[in-house]
Design a binder for these strands. Structure first.
Length: 224
DNA sequence: TCACTGATCGTCT
DNA sequence: GACGATCAGTGAG
């Protein structure tokens, strides 16, 4: 009948009580702060925060893993040129490219170059920060580690679907990027590896992740 | 922890 | 009609 795990239609909010952690404050990233080159942006995004205000409430996660998909990269969805599906990948940097994959899952990218150039950064995993109960409800699992570990899981936990495709992540809206939290522990060791789940250009080291983070996806040998 | 497999459906050739 | 930037479940080591 209906697709089982695709994010459902937005429920009509009946002013649910705001969980205490939803009041955490984040500073929205300005586009000028985003590096204008894909690899640099992928590295930059590690430690940044993705914030979803998709109803019924706020959920956010610290980005701990992402992959760069470059212009002219055979593994990138933009490789064959612009289509109806991937057109948001050709928007200027800082826009959401959301696509549906394997009949079950949505994945979120951040467009990464100037308008007209197809490239992006796939957000693969996050460490849940706020709205954890909401993520649990969306995901149907309780283990915090499994809420955002993997691109499909991350999108589902944040309530991201086709409706979020094309959103400006540097503007006010239901989905946006926030600066890393300052203070002790703000600086992390970033590792690099080959990308996961692709067959073309599979040897390129374009995946970045937080070393030793339990929230990173993929086999252990890629994460040391 | 890893390897394997089925589910599921939009997109593209 | 084939493929795919995945996930969850199962079984083996």
């Amino acid at each position: 009948m209906t697709s089982p795990r695709a994010p459902g239609p937005r429920s009509r909010s009946t002013s649910p009580p705001e969980p205490p952690d939803a009041r955490a404050r984040f500073r929205r990233l300005r586009r000028a702060e985003l590096p204008s080159e894909t690899v640099a942006l992928a590295r930059f995004l590690i430690g940044c925060i993705i914030v979803s205000d998709v109803p019924p409430g706020r959920a956010s996660a610290r980005i701990v893993e992402c992959e760069a998909y470059l212009p002219g990269d055979a593994a990138a969805h933009s490789f064959r040129g612009e289509t109806a599906r991937n057109r948001t990948l050709f928007m200027r940097r800082g826009h959401a490219y959301v696509y549906f994959i394997y009949g079950n899952h949505y994945c979120l990218n951040v467009s990464s170059e100037r308008a007209g150039i197809g490239a992006g950064v796939l957000l693969r995993a996050g460490e849940p920060l706020t709205g954890i109960d909401l993520m649990r409800a969306r995901r149907g699992v309780s283990a915090e580690r499994d809420l955002c570990r993997g691109p499909g899981r991350l999108a589902q936990a944040l309530g991201i679907g086709a409706a979020e495709d094309g959103l400006d992540l540097c503007a006010a809206g239901p989905l946006w990027l926030a600066a890393p939290r300052d203070g002790p522990g703000g600086r992390v060791a970033v590792g690099a590896s080959v990308r996961i789940g692709i067959s073309k250009e599979a040897d390129r080291v374009l995946r970045y992740y937080v070393r030793d983070s339990p929230y990173v996806s993929g086999p252990k040998k890629l994460n040391s």
